[in-house]
Design a binder for these strands. Structure first.
Length: 270
DNA sequence: GCGACAG
DNA sequence: ATCTTGTCGC
């Protein structure tokens, strides 16, 4: 039948009028973005900070991620962890298991993952827990996005918190390619640079690619989320990288996955 | 027209 | 994103 292919496409790509709504929402969010440093704390530059200035330093960094199970693709676990930048230890963790009916569509990740994550931030604030994060690190991009408003921007604006986007894979935008970026990084290694700006064919700076650990060839992709500059973003991410993925996101990733799997096992035994 | 596409 | 074991190396 002639209608079969179009209805199949509609299933896969999501209703187009819904996507128009999403684009509209993203355009509104984009107007509220602040692309420069807008916070009161300072970034601890190793030991060069005096004892009394320490209290003004960035200390509590939030990391968020969402995990899934293959068996139940619509089941998800959102996680928010807070890391003490001085010790790298987790000082707070929040989880929420939800059913997600919104599919993952490239360019619209926020509409799938933001609600549960915003709920976790709200809960921390509402319950007046200590360690409410001063900054949010997000597993997903900031302005490195087809319309310049990725998940990290979305969360930053909605929760009014400085945020940084960290992608493990490059979102292909404005002519950027993985291979092109890697070539540039390879060339810069000879001059002791592990971070390069991501400049598209239009000249736009979308973020930065960083080889975050010594000797790693696979970069991570950093972009502004909200209320922070790219420079500060890179400094902070670098500061958090014990491994390739910065600790706040890495812990959110590990713990959300294990939370979901523990839950699955206990359900099976009942 | 075809392929590519964060998590 | 998800599944999965061992295994190579510091």
């Amino acid at each position: 039948m002639e209608g079969s292919s179009s209805s199949f496409c509609r299933q896969v790509t999501t209703d187009s009028s819904l996507q128009q709504d999403w684009i509209c929402a993203q355009d509104l969010l984009k107007r509220k973005l602040v692309l420069q440093d807008d916070f009161t704390w300072t970034i601890s530059s190793e030991d060069s900070c005096s004892e009394k200035k320490r209290t003004d330093n960035l200390r509590y960094i939030g990391g968020v991620d969402v995990s899934y199970l293959k068996e139940y693709p619509s089941l998800a676990c959102g996680a928010l962890v807070v890391i003490d930048a001085y010790t790298s230890e987790v000082v707070h963790e929040e989880y929420k298991v939800v059913q997600l009916d919104i599919p993952y569509v490239p360019g619209f990740l926020a509409f799938r993952e933001a609600p549960v994550l915003l709920g976790l931030l709200d809960k921390m604030k509402y319950k007046d827990y200590p360690y409410y994060p001063q900054l949010l690190m997000v597993d997903g991009n900031g302005i490195l996005h087809p319309r310049g408003v990725g998940l990290a921007c979305h969360l930053g604006v909605m929760a009014d918190i400085p945020s940084i986007g960290v992608g493990k894979n490059l979102h292909l935008v404005d002519g950027l390619t993985q291979s092109g970026v890697r070539q540039l990084l390879e060339a810069r290694k000879n001059v002791d640079k592990d971070t390069i700006p991501l400049i598209g064919k239009t000249g736009q700076v979308w973020g930065a690619a960083m080889c975050s650990t010594t000797g790693s060839s696979k970069p991570i992709y950093i972009s502004i989320g909200h209320r922070i500059s790219l420079n500060s973003s890179c400094k902070i991410v670098k500061m958090c990288c014990k491994f390739r993925v910065p600790e706040p996101i890495r812990q959110a990733d590990i713990r959300s996955r294990s939370f979901l799997q523990k839950m699955q096992r206990s359900q099976l035994q009942v």
